[in-house]
Each structure stands twice: as C-alpha cells, then as structure tokens.
C-alpha cells in the first residue's frame, strides 16, 4: 500500500447561483509506474491512482481515468457550475483498492 497519501482540495465556500468556479485538487501519491526496477533488478509493481471523480450533489462533474505515465502527486484543476447550495465530493481510487475521499461544501448566496 502506498504510504503518505493525503488528498487536498481548494474550492470556494460561497458562490452566486449559476457561477462557474475553479476547483483545484491534489493528492500526494508516489504513482509508481510499474516500469522501474529496484536495486536487484526486480520490477517494482505498479501502484497508481487509476481514477478520479468529482460529484456535486450526486451529479458527476468530472470522471477521469488515469494511466501510469502520470507524474507523482497528481494535480487537477477544473471549472464547475454551481446551480445551488451543496457539496462537492471528490474520490480517488488506488490500484491497491484503497479509496480516498474528500468533500467541500459551497453555499449559494
């Protein structure tokens, strides 16, 4: 299992109805590609985050399939329209079966 994995999210806490907001996400993860070998010449098994999703009140915002060439600590920045108050839910899926989650609430004023 990958160690030191920690999800981070930066999203606004308030928005006006229908506003398009920028969301930044980052997860610290080694993203071992499976292509490298250790000191004894044995392959190091692949261990990456293979999927990242963001939902707003249950509705999909982004759903991203990730491949081994993606660098360590993958960072995503995307825009989302906020129609009403609610909660963004972020989910990262690890090769080892772990699932990391984070949420961020936004209030429409």
């Amino acid at each position: 299992m990958a160690s030191g994995v920690k999800p981070r999210v930066k999203a606004p806490k308030t928005a006006s109805a229908g506003e398009v907001v920028t969301i930044k996400t980052l997860i610290s993860h080694p993203m071992e590609s499976g292509q490298r070998k250790d000191g004894n010449g044995n392959p190091i098994p692949r261990s990456i985050i293979n999927r990242f999703t963001c939902e707003f009140n249950g509705e999909s915002v982004v759903d991203i399939a990730m491949e081994p060439a993606i660098s360590t600590n993958p960072y995503f920045e995307f825009d989302a329209k906020v129609p009403e108050s609610g909660e963004f839910k972020f989910t990262w899926y690890d090769d080892d079966g772990s699932v990391y989650e984070d949420t961020s609430a936004v209030t429409v004023s």
Binding site: R8, K24, N73
Partner: peptide, 12 residues
Amino acid sequence: DFDNPGMIFVDQ
C-alpha cells in the same frame, strides 16, 4: 501554496 508542490513536504 496550493499550487506549490513543495508544500506537500512541509505537511509531511
């Protein structure tokens, strides 16, 4: 600071 990858290591 959110964009600065060095801050991950500060957290660690």
